[in-house]
Structure formats: C-alpha cells, structure tokens
Design a protein around this nucleic acid. Structure first.
Length: 275
DNA sequence: AGGTCGACCTGGCAGC
DNA sequence: TGCTGCCAGGTCGACC
C-alpha cells in the first residue's frame, strides 16, 4: 500500500522520533519478515546500535545504523502492501506486530504487517538489495525534469499505466497515484507510452509532481491499512478523484468512473475526461 | 531485451 | 451464522 507520499510521511515522522536513539533490544515475533541476514544475526547486530539517520528511496525506508563495533550498516524496510512502522511511548503491540525495536529511551518501534509481504534487511551496502540496483529517478527530486521524462517515454512501447508502476521507470508511484496522475493529466491509461505528444507529456510531468507533492502535504492516503509514523491515517483520501470510485460520477464531468484490470491491477479512469 | 504474468501471504467482505 | 470466493496499495522471477 504505501506509495511514495506515505513512505515519505513515515520517514519524516521517524526522523523526529527515533533518529539519535539507540536500540536496546530487537524482539522478533515472526522471523519471516527478516530477509537478510539470518534472524539471530539481525538481532545481535542491531542490539546496541545507534540510529544515525533515516531516508526514503522509492518506497523503501533506509535507516542508517552505527552498530556496537562502530560499523555503518543500513536497516532497510520495505513496507510493501500492508507494512507499518509505528513509534509509540507505550507498548501498543498488536496481533499484527511482527517485530519490535525496544529503544533505550523506553519508546517502542513496531513493525506491523498483515500480509507478511514486507521485508527487512540489514546490509553494509544498499546495492546488496536488488531493488536499489534497478530503482529509477525520484519524481520529486530537482533532477527529474520533463525533457528527461519525454526522452525515456519515447522508447517505451508499453501502456502508460503499467509503466508508471515500474519502479525502474519512476520510483515510488503505486496503483492509487498512477490512476490519479493519469486522470489529472487527461491521459487514458491504455495509451501506448511512446505515442504521447509533447503537450501530453508536459501535463503528465506536472501531474506526477503535483499529485505526489500534494499527497505528501496531506500525509498520504489511507485506504485501508496505511498509518503514519505515529499510527494515524493520511488525509489525501479527501482529494482522491478516481481511485476506488467506479460507477460514481466523475467530479469534473459527471460521467461514471470506470474500473478495468490492467496486468492484474485495478485501474480507475473517466472515459470522457481521459481520451 | 522488453514486456507480461503469477506467486508470495493474510484478512475482510459480499454473496449465498 | 457460516462457508466460499474474491479482492487488496508491491516486488520479483519466470516465461514468451
């Protein structure tokens, strides 16, 4: 579930609550969420480690750790569909808590995950994780420019909607924002990427930046399981135009919003507004 | 090589 | 009430 705006929100929250703190103990309730190294090693290497910083790349959270041997390590958390990383002063463990970092200041940092798709890694180098090797440009970064997007779109013969979901093409866009971005840009999800004209690409570029930035400002979209770093819901749901609104009237023209399945994923659009 | 499709998991909900 | 089948926001490996 969490896409770029949700992960960015969690990242900013945790920057305030856990950076500078030290891990006293790692309590593992379900070892399946730990992908690397082995759970016992994961636990022992993080015991006593300092959290030096936190950042986001794509939909991944990267916690920079200084371990007891003063070695720099990266704790990488991919929340996938249903993962949550929530910091609280009380214990607040739930049935879905898979792992808890007990901090020396008595706070609890819980990793909750309903579907167990999420993953945690502890690595020396981010390139040990294949996700980072193939990650495309950050859409909110200064160097993400329209001319670059145009150049890359012109090489793609795939449909635009699934292309927006490919993290190697642009980092961080997921299924909700892909539908919202194409609606704002007036582009039909089944358009072949390389057939977009420069006017449409300009609109697409603006929509990517605008929607993601506004969603960050509103602290993300809570459809179902997403919660921020304090366990609270996001507010961008109030600005959603098409996602999950099939059969309801388009806010712009009144035509019923339609749902179709593209490559196994629900896609929402307005037939009238997105030619 | 680029594009597409299932598998990975669990829980909630609609329909019978 | 209780069962079954379907659906879910991401990613990766296998296949064409």
């Amino acid at each position: 579930m969490p896409e770029l705006p949700e992960v960015e929100t969690i990242c900013r929250d945790l920057k305030k609550s856990v950076v500078g703190e030290r891990i006293k103990e790692v309590v593992i309730f379900d070892h399946r969420v730990i992908r690397f190294p082995k759970p016992a090693e994961f636990q022992s290497q993080l015991r006593g480690a300092w959290i030096k910083g936190i950042e986001r790349r794509g939909k991944a959270l990267i916690l920079e750790m200084a371990t007891s041997r003063r070695k720099r390590r990266f704790l990488v958390v991919q929340l996938m569909m249903t993962g949550q990383l929530v910091c609280s002063a009380q214990e607040q463990k739930t049935a879905l808590t898979r792992l808890t970092f007990l901090l020396c200041n008595k706070d609890h940092l819980h990793y909750n995950d309903q579907r167990l798709f999420g993953r945690l890694y502890l690595v020396n180098d981010l390139n040990e994780i294949s996700y980072f090797q193939s990650l495309g440009p950050e859409p909110l970064a200064k160097d993400f420019v329209c001319s670059g997007l145009q150049e890359r779109l012109q090489k793609k013969s795939t449909l635009i909607k699934p292309l927006l979901l490919q993290h190697s093409f642009v980092a961080g866009i997921g299924n909700i924002y892909a539908s919202e971005i194409l609606f704002q840009a007036h582009i039909h999800p089944q358009r072949v990427a390389k057939t977009l004209c420069s006017d449409e690409i300009e609109k697409l570029y603006q929509a990517i930046r605008n929607i993601l930035a506004r969603a960050v400002k509103r602290r993300g979209t809570s459809m179902n399981t997403y919660r921020d770093g304090y366990g609270k819901r996001g507010q961008f749901i109030q600005e959603i135009q098409v996602y999950g609104r099939d059969t309801k009237a388009c806010y712009r023209c009144g035509t019923p919003i339609e749902r179709m399945v593209m490559q196994g994923r629900s896609t929402f659009f307005c037939r009238w507004c997105q030619a």
